[in-house]
Write a protein that binds this DNA or RNA. Structure first.
Ligand SMILES: [Mn+2]
Ligand SMILES: [Mn+2]
Ligand SMILES: [Zn+2]
Ligand SMILES: [Zn+2]
Lengths: 143, 143
DNA sequence: ACGCAAATGCAAATCATTTGCATCTAAATT
DNA sequence: AATTTAGATGCAAATGATTTGCATTTGCGT
């Protein structure tokens, strides 16, 4: 993911090319972690990038609206998380021990959605799936 | 669900039997809707039951801790919703048009969880699944 | 009826997120 | 290159759901 491609995605969405937008896209495109707004702010600060927290929020909103990022909400967590949108349908495995969030690039629901559609009359436009449990490491610490 | 059984669930959990706890359990046990704390407050008010909103929250917390109710969070909604816990594993179908939430008493993930367990080394303790789309009625209004 | 721990009411605090408004900047236009 | 202006940003204050501290009340065992 070159800086040029990021700028192209920003401009392509009809947005102004600003350093903070590039910074945020850059950070998220380099990880598959889910990162909160506050954590984005903290990580930028660590790199001496002085963005205002409300600009972080506004930037995230706009980038989500333009499908450059995804907003993800996790059961039991009050803040939202963000990830770079790679246009790869996926779900999450979430450790209740260490709060690690692991993406799963696999979907068990494709067939089921068809079934649901015919049974319910609903037009299904998407779904969300999360698995909860304990990762290898945390499992060991469960006494 | 008789009032006596509700009182038994409360006492069985080691809690004091109070009118508000019974009122809230009673309300939720009579519907399969997901209801927010504020909406619970409003519905009680309509029946001239004058509970304080913070008591609603505290009661919900305790009843969730004691597995008498379930707390449910919905993608894109900031408040939590509550349902009576019937100990029946289920998921939800959510209409993006009218925000109707329909429980689905069926689970497409039982086999998949096993697979995931062996592949990831995770101990899986639960999952969450939601389907989003448009119900019959709202589909018609989609131009 | 008495005593105490638990439950409640009320007001204030908290926390993530949003907003109003003044100022600044990207980038289109002269 | 200077000018213009819509859109972006900073800052402080507002918001909305939820939580908390503390005084008062209530359920329930004695
Ligand atoms: Mn899927
Ligand atoms: Mn299931
Ligand atoms: Zn873990
Ligand atoms: Zn609908």
């Amino acid at each position: 993911m070159t800086k040029e491609r990021m700028v192209n995605r920003i401009i392509g969405a009809g947005l102004k090319n600003t350093k903070y937008r590039v910074n945020i896209i850059e950070m998220l495109s380099k990880t598959d972690e889910l990162v909160s707004a506050q954590e984005i702010y903290n990580r930028l600060l660590k790199k001496s990038i002085f963005i205002n927290l409300s600009t972080v929020y506004r930037t995230l909103d706009i980038l989500v609206d333009n499908k450059i990022l995804n907003r993800v909400t996790i059961e039991g967590e009050k803040q939202s998380f963000y990830e770079y949108n790679r246009d790869i349908h996926h779900h999450f495995l979430i450790c209740r021990g260490c709060n690690k969030i692991i993406p799963i690039y696999d979907c068990p629901l494709e067939d089921y959605e068809q079934k649901l559609k015919s049974e319910s009359g609903f037009v299904i436009t998407g779904h969300r799936v999360e698995f909860y449990g304990y990762c290898d490491e945390c499992r060991k610490n469960l006494i």
